[in-house]
Design a protein around this nucleic acid. Structure first.
Length: 280
DNA sequence: AGTACAGCCTGCCTGC
DNA sequence: TGCAGGCAGGCTGTAC
């Protein structure tokens, strides 16, 4: 559920509180199997690699939160479907589904909460093998220069699948999920079942612009807390972009633009919502 | 090589 | 009321 704008918001919230802080310890309160560490060889190595390091920097890559550690190591977090990363004082009561706690200086906790266990933590060390390549496989950041109109045009022309699955492929564009791919397609007036190679130059230009505008607006509004009310920012607050959603989770409601009933259809194992009149 | 899809997981909602 | 079943969805491994 947390996509690019939500992770960006969490990163911005956490940075001033955690950068420069030493991680004193890491504990795993509720999950004996520690499935959140499934990519990493062992819990011991993870804890030993992190304990005593200082958080030098926090950044975002796609939907991953990346903590650069001093003197070495890169801590990577993915919030999966239902994950939250919360800054709490040591003595505040533990949240349900609390999976991991990073004990920082000054009695501060960075808490990883995740009911559905789709989230993931891993530590990249020089010796950690394939973990190093996970971030490298991702496509360009949609708000960076390398996600140009030329790039989008070229890969759209080469692909042979629906525009909806294309936009959610992290190797193509890093950071879009179901919410924002639906919203971008609505803004661009493109039907989610269209095949990539059928888009003309005008449509591609509009789509490129829609991706920029949708993501910038969503970051400005601090992300989307959809009806499952799961996403929270770094301090536990809800986002505000859900008020601006045009199609996502609006099936059966009237399109704000033309009044037609919003429909949904499964595409690539996901539910795509769209306005059958506005989107061609 | 590129694409499609099952499986992972569990709270919540719907229907019986 | 209580239960079963379906849905939600990011990512990976596997199959085509």
């Amino acid at each position: 559920m947390p996509e690019l704008p939500e992770i960006e918001t969490i990163k911005n919230d956490l940075s001033p509180h955690v950068v420069g802080k030493v991680i004193m310890n890491v504990t795993f309160p509720t999950d004996p199997n520690i499935r959140i560490l499934r990519r990493f060889p062992s819990q011991d190595t993870f804890v030993r690699g992190i304990r005593g390091t200082e958080i030098e920097n926090v950044r975002r890559r796609a939907k991953y939160l990346v903590f650069d550690l001093r003197p070495s190591g890169t801590l990577v977090m993915h919030l999966g479907m239902s994950g939250q990363l919360l800054l709490r004082s040591m003595d505040s009561p533990p949240e349900p589904y609390l999976r991991a706690v990073f004990h920082l200086e000054n009695h501060i906790h960075l808490r990883f909460v995740d009911p559905r266990k789709f989230g993931e933590l891993f530590l990249i060390l020089p010796s950690s093998g394939k973990c190093q390549f996970i971030l490298e496989k991702l496509g360009p950041e949609p708000l960076e220069k390398d996600f140009s109109l030329e790039y989008l045009t070229n890969i759209l022309r080469k692909a042979k699948r629906t525009i909806k699955t294309f936009l959610m492929d992290q190797k193509v564009i890093a950071g879009l999920g179901n919410i924002y791919s639906d919203e971008c397609l609505f803004k661009a007036k493109i039907h989610p079942t269209r095949f990539t190679y059928t888009l003309d130059d005008d449509e591609i230009r509009t789509l490129h612009r829609s991706i920029h505008r949708t993501l910038r607006e969503a970051i400005k509004r601090r992300g989307t807390t959809a009806s499952d009310k799961r996403y929270r920012d770094g301090l536990g607050r809800m986002g505000k972009f859900q008020d601006l959603l045009q199609v996502y989770q609006r099936r059966g409601n009237a399109c704000y633009c033309c009044g037609t009933v919003i429909q949904s259809t499964p595409i690539g194992g996901r539910t795509a919502s769209f306005c059958p009149r506005c989107q061609k």
